[in-house]
Design a protein around this nucleic acid. Sequence first.
DNA 1: CCCGTTCTGGAGTTAGCGCTCCAATTTACC
DNA 2: GGTAAATTGGAGCGCTAACTCCAGAACGGG
Lengths: 213, 213
Amino acid sequence: MATEPARLTAKGRATRDRIVGVASELMLTQGVARTTIEDIQREASVSASQLYHYFADKHALVHAVIERQTTDVLGFQRLALDRLDSFAALQEWRDMAVAVMEQRNCTGGCPLGTLASELAETDPAARDELATSFGRWEKLLRDGLAAMRTRGELVPEADPDRLALALLAAVQGGLLLSQTRRDSLPLEVALDTSIAYVRTFAPSNWGSGQRVG
Amino acid sequence: MATEPARLTAKGRATRDRIVGVASELMLTQGVARTTIEDIQREASVSASQLYHYFADKHALVHAVIERQTTDVLGFQRLALDRLDSFAALQEWRDMAVAVMEQRNCTGGCPLGTLASELAETDPAARDELATSFGRWEKLLRDGLAAMRTRGELVPEADPDRLALALLAAVQGGLLLSQTRRDSLPLEVALDTSIAYVRTFAPSNWGSGQRVG
DNA sequence: CCCGTTCTGGAGTTAGCGCTCCAATTTACC
DNA sequence: GGTAAATTGGAGCGCTAACTCCAGAACGGG
C-alpha cells in the first residue's frame, strides 16, 4: 500500500524525512483534511514531483505520518519512564506530560489521539494502525504496572490491564480537555486522580472495602 | 456572527433544523473539513440558495452544529442522571454511556470531543464555545458530587471540582479509545475505575493513607 | 569517467469546492 | 384578496485542490 522504494539515497531519505516532518506538523495542527499538498510543498521546499516521487498519494503520506508519530510518542514515553515500574516513575511521567503541555501553552493534544479522532470514521486503515499504536502504548504502561505488582509495590488484586487502560484514557481525555480549555489543569487532575487510584492498590493503602469493579 | 433572521416561519424553521441535523451527522462522522456544502444539500434535499439563506457561510453552520450538539449531549446527560447525586445514579450513567456506545458498534465518539479535537487549533471561536460546553457538562457532574458530599455519601475531603474533571476526562478518553479500537472495553474500564476512585471517598472506604493529590 | 538509476523542477489538467445571483413561488398578516 | 416578506430553485463563477507529465540534473557503482 505504501510506496516502497527499493533503494533510497542518503539525500533522498533526507528529503523524504523532511516531507514527513513538515506533513506531521501541519496535519497535527490544522488537521489532515485541511492540510494541502501545496502547503507541504511550500513548507518543505519541495516540488510536486518530488513529493509524489516518495509518496503515491495523500493517503500514503498520512500513513507515514502515523508511523512517525507512533515511534515519536512511544519513544518519548520510554524516555520519560525508561522503566515505568514505581510510583516515583509514574509521578515523573505525569510531571513530564504536564510540562510538555505547558511548554506548548496547551496548544495541540496527543498526536495519536488527534489523528485517531479525525481518521477513525473515514480511514479504516489509519484507524487500525492507530489502534495498534495505542495497544503498544498501553503495553508499556501494563508492563510497568505488572512489574510493580510482582515486586510487591501493588497488591495482587491490582489488575495491570485495567489500570493501564485507565491511565491511557486519562491522558487522552485530559489532553483533549486541556487543549480545548487552554489550561493544563484538566490534564493534571486526570493524571493525578488516576495515579491516586493506582495508589489505592499499594499495600499500605489497601484496606476496608476496595473493589476492582 | 451567526445569521440572525428577525422572524422565521414554521416551515423555515423546519428547513433550518433539517439542515443542522444533516450537517451534524455528516460533520461528526466525516469531520467538518471533509463535509462539503454539496453533501449537506443533497442529504437534506435543499438547494444552495436555501442553505445560504439560513447560514451566512460554512462557519455559521459549524456554529449551529456545535450549539445543537451541546444541547443534545447535555440534555442526554440530564436525562440519564436526572440528578447525579448517588453512586447508583453514577452507575446508571456509566451503563447508559456504555450501552449507547455498544448500540453504535463503537463507531463515533463524543460529539463535543470530536468537534473539539478537529477545531481547537483552527477555529478559535469554536474552541471557545466547546470549552464552555465542556464547562457546563462538568458543572452537572460537580453539582451531583457536591450534593453527595453534603448528604454525607462522600467524605468532606472529596473535592467535587477535581472529581468532576476526572470523570469528564475519563469519558472523553474512554470514548476515544473505544472508537479507535471498536471495542467498548476502554470506555467501561475508564468509567469503572474513575467511579471506583470516587468510591474511595465514601465514608465506609475512607481509610488509612488516602491522598487527594 | 560513464551510464543507469535516483532525484528534482514546474507547468499543466481535471474536478470539486464554497459561494453568488437573479428570479420565481409560497407564506403570513391585514 | 393583496402585498411584502419569507422561502425556494438552479445555473454559474472563481478558486484551489489533488495529481500528472515530461524532461533535465545529480548521483553512485563499475
